[in-house]
Design a protein around this nucleic acid. Structure first.
Lengths: 153, 153
DNA sequence: TATGAAATAATATAGTT
DNA sequence: AACTATATTATTTCATA
């Protein structure tokens, strides 16, 4: 079940364009369509490919502001953690969240329409989650490299 | 050219599964296949949909460790910035990078096989970029919410 | 100007070797 | 794994609101 060179070439091609026709993926992998089709299905079944997503332009959706918000809880009880993580799941403007090392507990990726909207999300949603002590916002000024591909080497 | 409710429903369906058949997207949007097909193409042409990506499981690719690395430059000359950003583009394990506010200049999302690999990336690649003064690593312990969807409301 | 239904074209999948 | 045949699916055409 480990990936071979064909699988890597297939994944690389799909990372270029997940809607690329199988025949074209096959060219990239120096294979014919049939085995590529079967391999893609196997990669899906094995959970290597978890799904397919459109890459949307946040600006075209009116979402101009990205921020990374570091959050601290005042007590790390199960209830607090449960409540925090559930509030995070429910907030559509929190597009990612990780528990992290260091003096802050969570790193939260927030996307917002503008500064006022970010402020509203921070003050009215994040800071009001019970157990949240402190938040520090890192605001994105410019995206140098957008998150698109994973390394396959 | 602003998005209407149909467009939002279409985008929401595609965010569930970008390979969903047009007929099925059409059901979600309470429309028939023809206009959905045309609307999707228009969304692509307008740059709202920038492309399509497979969602890969990093663990299945042997990438077990995520880190957010904050980086400081010692001088903000054009050369330094140019050199830094170009080095970032060339590094496949840097999967995203933003210029940010605060006392650090950049927030870099690194994905690595393990702690040793992260250490190697930090010491042998990032810290060796000319102009880099300081790095602070925030290591991801657990992903609470994986980055998948953008809010469409 | 945008839709829906039907016809056509493109593409993916299954069977066979 | 490839070739061929079949089945899905997408797109175009055309009539219409």
């Amino acid at each position: 079940m480990p990936l071979d060179e064909f699988d890597r070439k297939i994944l690389a091609a799909l990372q270029e364009d997940a809607r690329m026709p199988v025949a074209q993926v096959a060219e990239h992998a120096a294979l014919s369509a049939t085995p590529v089709s079967r391999r893609i299905r196997k990669l899906e079944e094995d959970g290597v490919i978890r799904g397919y997503q459109p890459v949307l332009d946040p600006r075209k959706l009116g979402l101009e502001l990205n921020a990374y918000v570091l959050i601290n809880l005042d007590a790390h009880s199960d209830v607090n953690i449960q409540r925090f993580e559930s509030a995070i799941q429910d907030n559509a403007y929190v597009i990612a969240c990780h528990a992290v090392t260091g003096d802050m507990d969570y790193l939260v990726h927030v996307i917002a329409r503008d500064v006022e909207h970010l402020s509203q999300i921070t003050l009215k949603s994040l800071l009001r989650i019970p157990g949240v002590r402190d938040v520090k916002s890192i605001i994105v000024l410019e995206t140098i490299k957008p998150p698109l591909k994973l390394p396959l080497g």
